[in-house]
Nucleic acid binder design. Sequence first.
DNA 1: CCCTGATTCGC
DNA 2: GCGAATCAGG
Length: 179
Amino acid sequence: MAWTDERVEQLKKLWSEGLSASQIAKQLGGVTRNAVIGKVHRLGLSGRATPSRPARRTVKPSRPRTTTASTAPAQRPVSRPSPSTPTPAAPKPAPVEPAVLPSGEFATVLTLRDSMCKWPIGDPAQAEFRFCGRKTAGGNAYCEAHSSMAYQPSAKRRRRTSDAGAALDAIAATRRYNF
DNA sequence: CCCTGATTCGC
DNA sequence: GCGAATCAGG
């Protein structure tokens, strides 16, 4: 998309209103936040009522754009202990309701992230279609509530011992509930 | 990990 | 002029 006068005006307005580059990009559509930032700089309106900006310049000299091959590995043998949750909370009954993100929006195919529950809600053919969007339960594709739904142990022949088996079971269960 | 803006530079 | 890649920081 090109920077029409109209879009540039929008950009200036939103930028002066304090919106972040990504927010502006999302609103304008067809551009990334990088594009917005780049344009902002080209327009010469970088400074703003930016809260987080003590006045420090980042100063980065050279940056080989492409064909970057060299550069030593720089090992990092020392590993971090990492705390990790001692005792996971018990699987709560859990309310399997919609899902409102902190941003006030819903989790759509555009806003869904890896850390968000991918449990589909609604008809994929409808605009109202969204995803659960809650915090993913430990590496799982779903939140705790939906994980328990996807993986309903049949009580019998449960012990497949392998995680792969469990994963397959989860997938099978998912099929049962949706697609 | 999420996000922010800043900068460089191939196109 | 444009913006992806990258950086530095919160």
